[in-house]
Design a protein around this nucleic acid. Structure first.
Lengths: 339, 339
DNA sequence: TTGAAAGCGCTAACAT
DNA sequence: ATGTTAGCGCTTTCAA
């Protein structure tokens, strides 16, 4: 059996109270006792029972993260990187991470509710915020701590980290226009995601500032996967007036689009240019490598986690809303359009 | 505040014990009382405090999973899919999943030890087993429940799920030989991973059965990433007698190899054929699409999780060692070699 | 500087 | 069919 605080107490011939205090370095314990207790704990391989400790303290030292999974092939590299970012920072602070999976939908709030009410976590990290985000509304309504990766329109005071993707898309617009593109189409996920709204807005405003209007029928909607990108790109390629550039709202979709263009016998970066967003590692290894906007997902995971831990510890945040500046990564999937 | 069992007891005018028993559907509680208690619980939105419940029961109903992260860009799609598989099954059984991150190395065992001794989890899922696996040795030595994705040489009786990747590689060998390839090279990760050992062994035996010997200097070692595949493939391409086929031990490496071949002005599937392993979704969207071996990662996650839950519940397993049969996915990254 | 005692929210053995 | 009581392992008043 794992030794308990009582075992140490017996060993050193002190009360469990004293042992507890010694272990927590209270200053009303004599240095000798502290030393004695520490040594015994060390020798016995004592590690506090977290259940008991936390039950007593009415806290969990645990961060909740509910993966919004889509179907049985949930293999978005975005999430492993984000998770690693959270996990690393959490362990720096001695926090654990409780991960659940739940497809977006009605059951989702139940999952949050369950974790809140059964006292499993101190706070949540919310990812891929939505325009009408039931998760955030719920947590807000019960005043439960959370930090979001992404903003929510109409809820201007939630704590979040996000990338300024309007700006990111403006960089892309400027860049494509600079290369000579005039006919640009866009492959986007459902507009329920706030990042989609922001990115589309950025693209529109970027193009508009060069006198170009992005028409609604040039924005195609698909899944945030290679498959989604592939299918929508095929539709664009088959149009009579096909675009000279396709702006995909994430790298996975862009990779699908590249594949579709190549399967159609066209050359990426010549016949059709393609851009992505995120700069996942694969983006450097498509052929040709993908022009995209960098988003430091690992670091964002860490930031979000750190903010949340401060919040649950009631340490005032110097900055509870962080908007990161994006940068364009120019690679070879983009080039001047063929006249 | 969240209502406790005591609040319900007061409301219905019964003892705490009765409430507890009613909630657990003990059959020494009158149906009326049960009904009364359930209704009250429902109305008050009662959800049991897991900390307390589990402290009492000396169990956690939680599965531990420690992500072996490598560096700050940990974006292997393999892990999000595996995690989703575990998570889905866990929630079916009312189990939670505690995820930590820790780079492989000395600190790793400390992380396991901490979670074991602080009573955070009932069992572990181990991923990417290693030839000399300190994690498994540790858990075995303290007789703590775990299930591995992958085998461990010399520890023949651990519970595991694995794919028969020797067979998978033999399929690849047969296929490449059938296409006419005679000069085949391999890009592998460090041989500390058992899956690497198995796959290399399968490849060697597959080739040998056709009278071909895979030489040690034709096995190059790199990271399990696109970058690793790219760099090693470049070395192979620059050899005076370059191979006509490159067998990569996972899809990510294969994707890097494809990129290297194309960057060298060669054609994948003609000048050099490439194969992968895993069949991640991206594999269907490389150009040309990747010939690979399918590995149902999501399902494996679910199986491993289910086995572990049975174990911690002391339900006898009908099958504690599962070896899945792989299948070859033929795509266009492979073709007959140019004479 | 230390210890006794209460209690976090729950379950279960033992009464009744 | 229900209640009393003890206790999971820990922290924290309060008293000495």
């Amino acid at each position: 059996m794992t030794p308990s605080i009582r075992d140490i107490a017996e060993r050193v011939g002190k009360s469990i109270t004293t042992v507890s205090r010694a272990l927590h370095d209270y200053d009303d314990v004599s240095p000798e006792t502290k030393e004695l207790v520490r040594k015994a704990a060390e020798e016995m391989g004592y590690i506090a029972n977290r259940q008991a400790q936390l039950l007593r303290q009415k806290t969990t030292d645990t961060i909740g993260f509910i993966l919004p999974t889509f179907g049985p092939r949930f293999s978005d590299p975005f999430f492993s990187e984000f998770l690693a970012g959270i996990g690393n920072k959490a362990s720096d602070y001695g926090y654990d991470m409780l991960v659940s999976t739940c497809p977006p939908g009605d059951k989702e709030i139940k999952t949050y509710q369950y974790e809140v009410q059964s006292n499993r976590v101190d706070g949540f990290i919310i990812v891929r915020t939505r325009v009408d985000d039931a998760r955030i509304k719920y947590l807000n309504s019960i005043d439960f701590p959370f930090v979001a990766f992404g903003r929510v329109p109409g809820m201007e005071d939630i704590p979040f980290v996000d990338e300024n993707s309007e700006l990111g898309m403006q960089l892309i617009a400027d860049y494509l226009i600079g290369l000579g593109h005039r006919h640009i189409a866009c492959i986007a996920p459902s507009m329920e995601y706030t990042f989609a709204v922001h990115r589309i807005a950025g693209l529109k405003s970027g193009l508009r500032s060069h006198g170009i209007q992005l028409k609604e029928n040039e924005i195609l909607t698909g899944d945030l996967t290679e498959k989604g990108g592939y299918e929508r790109a095929m539709e664009l390629i088959r149009q009579k007036e096909r675009p000279t550039a396709i702006v995909a709202l994430n790298d996975l979709m862009a990779m699908g689009a590249i594949s579709a263009i190549q399967d159609s016998g066209l050359t990426v970066g010549k016949d059709i240019s393609v851009t992505g967003f995120d700069n996942i590692p694969s983006a450097a290894y498509t052929h040709p490598p993908l022009t995209t906007v960098s988003q430091p997902i690992f670091q964002i995971g860490g930031m979000v986690c750190e903010m949340l831990i401060q919040m649950v510890k009631h340490i005032p945040l110097e900055n509870r809303q962080i908007l990161l500046k994006p940068s364009l990564i120019e690679r070879l999937s983009t080039g001047a359009p063929i006249k």
